[in-house]
Design a protein around this nucleic acid. Sequence first.
DNA 1: TTACGTGCAAAAGGTTTGCAATAAC
DNA 2: GTTATTGCAAACCTTTTGCACGTAA
Lengths: 147, 147
Amino acid sequence: MTSRIEQACIDKGMKMTEQRRVVARVLSDASDAHDHPDVEEVYRRASAIDKRISLATVYRTLRLFEDAAIIQSHDFGGVRARYEAAEDDSHHDHLIDVDSGEVIEFYDGELEALQDRIAARLGFRLVDHKMELFGKALEPRSGRRGG
Amino acid sequence: MTSRIEQACIDKGMKMTEQRRVVARVLSDASDAHDHPDVEEVYRRASAIDKRISLATVYRTLRLFEDAAIIQSHDFGGVRARYEAAEDDSHHDHLIDVDSGEVIEFYDGELEALQDRIAARLGFRLVDHKMELFGKALEPRSGRRGG
DNA sequence: TTACGTGCAAAAGGTTTGCAATAAC
DNA sequence: GTTATTGCAAACCTTTTGCACGTAA
């Protein structure tokens, strides 16, 4: 079945190889799970589906998708970039649990509006923003790591 | 004359070598100018003051200062980390001009308060945050690059 | 005096790339 | 059939590190 990201690639007229299809599927599934895998993790999951894929191709494909605005990369303070499907309408930001590394997505309309106002005040039109909160859980959380 | 960052190092009991003094001075001056140099730039400026400094020592010193919370590093989307003096009381965030690369500092009390509220709503105590706005100037700006 | 810092050059680790083989359109 | 894509391995670039030498306290 055609994954959401594969469909986005087709819509953009990309030549769809098996490798791209597999990476698209991995990223679509990750997105559904609000997951933010890094390159190695995408490579691992892609290899599990089809062994014929190489790390170089994963890098090239991620860059291709990112340049096409199909996915976006994040730097959550770790060593490698992490990826998620680009948001269409539903923008969100991230809160990172500093103890577990878990990434929690959130949306706050007030925050979005405030950012526009701040940019305007400084004489700019906002084209993008990056907002990450780092916090400690007030109550102990279940043990999942990553996100 | 003793730079602000050199004084912070002395206060923390660091052994002050000539190299550390020079890097401290470069960073103090950059901070006064609201400048955010990367490693190469710090190395360049330090070398101009004293040729005996090596890139490895600049890396080691920046890491030392950062671990001591005397400076902080940022990833503004470029390839290298960029540095500024750690904020004592006057927290600020950054707006990056996507056309020129210029970095503009700003402070917004409402934003700070809102972030705390969002974290609390998600069940977290905020320990840090990273907020970067990327914008296009509404009016053409003078040609400085960097910041 | 002595533990710690430095310079050099080599290594590490993530990411990119040249090239010949391969596959999509 | 053409042109873009892939795998492999080597290159690249930033950052770290081992080691012998130097120096602050």
